[in-house]
């Protein structure tokens, strides 16, 4: 598996560390309540198909949101996580 790092180009999977679904980007407010935090931390759509998840490219320290297919492993797009707020 090779992942196009937006910073470094196509790299072998072994340079990356996986975190989980990109729902981790949508952090609830401190007082959002148990349900919201449960949904954020634990509950997953877990799709068999296209998903978005989070990978860290260790050499360049970029967190990347990867759009890919969990059935075929095809990678559809990648974008730096930081772009959302920067």
């Amino acid at each position: 598996m090779r992942i196009p790092c937006p910073c470094c180009g196509s790299r072998d999977r072994r340079e990356f560390t996986y975190y989980g679904a990109s729902v981790f980007l949508d952090r609830p407010a401190e007082d959002a309540g148990l349900e919201a935090w449960d949904a954020y931390l634990h509950l997953r759509d877990n799709p068999a198909g296209v998903t978005r998840d989070l990978w860290y490219h260790d050499p360049c320290q970029s967190w990347i949101e990867v759009e890919r297919d969990t059935v075929t492993h095809a990678i559809l797009s990648t974008a730096p996580v930081a772009r959302r707020r920067a």
């Binding site: 989980g20 679904a21 449960d38 949904a39 634990h42 509950l43 997953r44 759509d45 877990n46 799709p47 068999a48 969990t70």
Partner: peptide, 18 residues
């Protein structure tokens, strides 16, 4: 291995990632 898809048929999200 298919828990998420089957649970979705019952309107559930599970605390599971495959």
């Amino acid at each position: 291995g298919r828990s998420g898809q089957v649970a979705a048929m019952a309107g559930m999200r599970l605390p599971v990632e495959s």
